[in-house]
Design a protein around this nucleic acid. Structure first.
Ligand SMILES: [Mn+2]
Ligand SMILES: [Mn+2]
Ligand SMILES: [Mn+2]
Ligand SMILES: [Mn+2]
Lengths: 149, 149
DNA sequence: GCATTAATATAGCAATTGCTATGTTAGGAC
DNA sequence: GTCCTAACATAGCAATTGCTATATTAATGC
């Protein structure tokens, strides 16, 4: 036999390696915005309104945390706050929400199609969704489609 | 036909929903520790030593950022710093590194097996790895195994 | 109409993760 | 042995994301 030690895959060049970490840090920064906008959209669709309190409850954070973040989203032009009437999405917010929601849906369906249980698929997809490139998303979509004819 | 509007999947209960976000936030906190420990292990294996400068170069952050994080990892008992000789892993650090490295390897192989290109697989796996449950990891592993006989 | 109260806003704080600027020093070339 | 320099340490700062405590106010039930 050649050797017993499993040959360690050599590290890729630093300039190549760094790309992945940079991209992941960028994704991480977008993550929270994406989750807020998606959740606001979901609440508007499902409950007819999106209140800070309900957002806080679902995200598992305190209400002032939500208030602060919504202020930022508003100043970024993604939502508008109608005092005591809840949060609404701008056109830009709606566009982001629908992209993000569809991506989330595909990731979760993909995990289900792979045989993952409902709970793990729900939990894992909440994190994975933000780190899936267009190329990977398309592969996930095709995989799901193939399983469902 | 029944109706044109695609029936919107109703939101899950808030108590269920919040689990995913909490888990994802926990994963996010562990993320940076995992990447550091894995990278230190890789550098030790590949280059024989792990220097702050090389860690910084690969992560794409400044050297003092690395210095601060290593101090934390040292106080957490994951690494030891031998001044001007680089970073080494404690037993606990080695254990974490090997778990994390294997998980990363499986996620990346899985994406490749799905048909994702080398670059996207490299980049996406750097983020996805931290959000994959044991159940999902096992499914990924089996999928790769099946493709490779 | 008004009082109640639930929703929201604000203040102040802490931890984390990044940065630049700059000081210190161990190792190695000579 | 000395000196140079690359490696590392430290100080000080900023942005982000969370918290608790508390003030304010719009909606609404009566
Ligand atoms: Mn989501
Ligand atoms: Mn998410
Ligand atoms: Mn990794
Ligand atoms: Mn990673």
């Amino acid at each position: 036999m050649a050797r017993k030690a499993k040959l360690p895959k050599p590290l890729v060049d630093p300039e190549i390696h760094v790309e992945s970490f940079r991209q992941t840090r960028n994704n991480r920064r977008a993550e929270i915005v994406e989750d807020y906008v998606e959740l606001v959209d979901d609440l508007l669709t499902d409950a007819g309104e999106a209140r800070q309190i309900d957002i806080a409850k679902r995200l598992g954070v305190a209400q002032p945390t939500v208030a602060k973040m919504l202020k930022r989203l508003a100043s970024d032009g993604l939502v508008v706050q109608r005092p005591y009437r809840g949060i609404f999405l701008t056109e830009e917010g709606k566009a982001l929400a629908s992209r993000v929601r569809e991506r989330h849906r595909i990731v979760e369906s993909f995990l289900r199609a792979l045989g993952i249980g409902e709970e793990s698929a729900r939990i894992d997809s909440e994190g994975i969704e933000h780190h899936v490139s267009d190329e990977t998303l398309e592969a996930f979509r095709k995989f799901v489609e193939a399983r469902n004819q």
